[in-house]
Computed example of a mutant assay.
Amino acid sequence: MPPAKKRTRSYDPARTRAAVLAQFENVRAAVRTLTPEQLALPTRLGDWTVRDLVAHLALTVGSVGRALERDEPAKPELALLDYASATAAHAGAVAEGARDLAGATPDLDALLTRTAEDLARHLAAAPHTRVLATGAGAMTLTDHLVTRAAELVVHTDDLNAAVPGLDVPHDRQALAACTRLLADTLAAKAPGGSTEVRIPPYAVVQCVQGPRHTRGTPPNVVETDPLTWLRLATGRTTWQDAVAGGTVGASGGRADLGPYLPLMT
C-alpha cells in the first residue's frame, strides 16, 4: 500500500501577516541599539558581518512589497514545502545583494523603518489569495509570508549568536510558523510513518519509511525544542552535536535524522 499523501498545512493569513510585522519590529528595535563595532562583528554565515545580515533582513521583508508591485502570475508554481530546496540556487545573488545594500546604507535604522512602513502599506491593500512572482517561483501571498516569517526567525537567532548579550525576542506566531514549515519539509523529504518528531509546543510530524506507528508509544521518537530544531534544519548545528549535547532526544533504530539534514541553508 502506498504511503498516505501528506496534506499541506494551512496558515491563518491574518496571524501570518501579524507575525512577520511583529518579528521584523523586534529586529528593528534591537538593531537601533547596536554600535558600529557590533555591526562590524562576524556572523556564523560565512563572511557576512552583522551589518550584512541586517541588510539581508531588509531585503527579505522588502521582497513582499516588490513582488506585490509586479504583475500577478496566473497561478502559483512553487509549493510551500518546496521552498527550502529552491533557495540554494539563489544563495550567491542573495549574499551579493545584502553586501551591496549594507555598503551603501550607513543608516540601517532608517532602512528598516522604511521597510516596515512599506510592508504594512502593501499588506493593508493586498488580498491573501494574491499570487506573487518571487525569485524562487510564483507563490500565494500567505505562503510567501510564511517563508518571510521563517527567514526572520532563523536570522534573528543568527543575530543573537553574533552579538554577545543581544537577546532579540522571537514572536510566538513567527516561531510557530518557522517550526511547522521546517517540520513539514522534513516529513515531505523523508516520507513515512515509522518515526515521530516532536517539537513542542508547535509541531509533531511522522516521517521516515518503515513500519507505520498507529497506537501507543511510537518505537522511534525524536524530541527537541524549536530553536534547536531550526538550527538543525538550517545547518547551524549538526545532528551529532545536538544529540551529544542533550538538546535532542532520540530513541529507536530509525530515529537518526542526520541523513536528512539540513533542509535549508
Rank of each mutant, 00 (worst) to 15 (best):
E72Y: 06
I199H: 12
D100K: 06
V131R: 10
A67H: 04
R28G: 12
R32G: 14
M139D: 12
N26F: 07
N26L: 10
L119G: 14
T195E: 03
V248Q: 11
D158R: 06
L186W: 03
A102S: 07
R44T: 15
R148Y: 06
A188V: 13
R99I: 04
A149G: 13
G245S: 11
R28K: 11
L112T: 13
A40R: 10
V248W: 02
R51S: 12
D171I: 08
E69W: 01
L21M: 10
R231W: 00
V54H: 04
R51P: 07
R99K: 11
Q38E: 12
A116I: 08
A255R: 14
R32L: 08
L141Y: 09
T49L: 03
L175G: 15
L159I: 06
Y11D: 13
L41V: 15
V94Y: 01
L152I: 13
V27E: 05
L181Q: 02
A55D: 03
G210I: 01
V54F: 01
Y202L: 12
E25C: 13
V208N: 11
A95S: 11
H56D: 06
G246D: 08
D118L: 08
V243A: 10
R32S: 14
E196C: 13
N26Q: 13
D143C: 14
E72W: 05
V31C: 08
K6N: 09
D71I: 06
G62K: 00
T105P: 06
A14F: 02
H90S: 05
G235F: 02
T234S: 13
S251R: 10
H122V: 14
T105L: 05
G92H: 04
A124M: 03
T60A: 14
D171H: 11
G258C: 05
T33G: 08
A190E: 06
A255V: 15
T49P: 06
G65D: 04
D100M: 05
T228H: 02
G62Q: 01
S10D: 08
G216S: 06
T237K: 00
T33M: 03
D107W: 02
P200K: 09
G253I: 03
P127V: 12
L152N: 15
A174P: 13
L101K: 07
P2F: 02
D171R: 01
Q23M: 11
W229A: 03
D184V: 12
Q206G: 07
R44W: 00
A183E: 00
A89R: 09
A102I: 05
R99Q: 06
H144N: 14
D118H: 07
R66V: 09
G65N: 04
D157C: 01
A138Y: 01
A55N: 00
M139G: 15
G252F: 00
H56I: 10
T156H: 01
A177P: 03
N160Y: 00
T265D: 07
A126K: 13
W239V: 15
A67V: 07
P259E: 02
A183Q: 00
A188T: 14
L57A: 12
N160V: 10
A58Q: 03
D47C: 07
R17Q: 04
P3K: 08
L112C: 11
G253D: 07
A233C: 10
D225Y: 06
D143E: 15
A203G: 12
P200C: 09
G65V: 09
T217W: 01
A244P: 03
A4P: 05
L181N: 00
P262L: 02
L186C: 10
T228I: 09
A126M: 09
T195Y: 01
W48N: 15
A14I: 11
D256A: 14
R70Q: 09
L41Q: 14
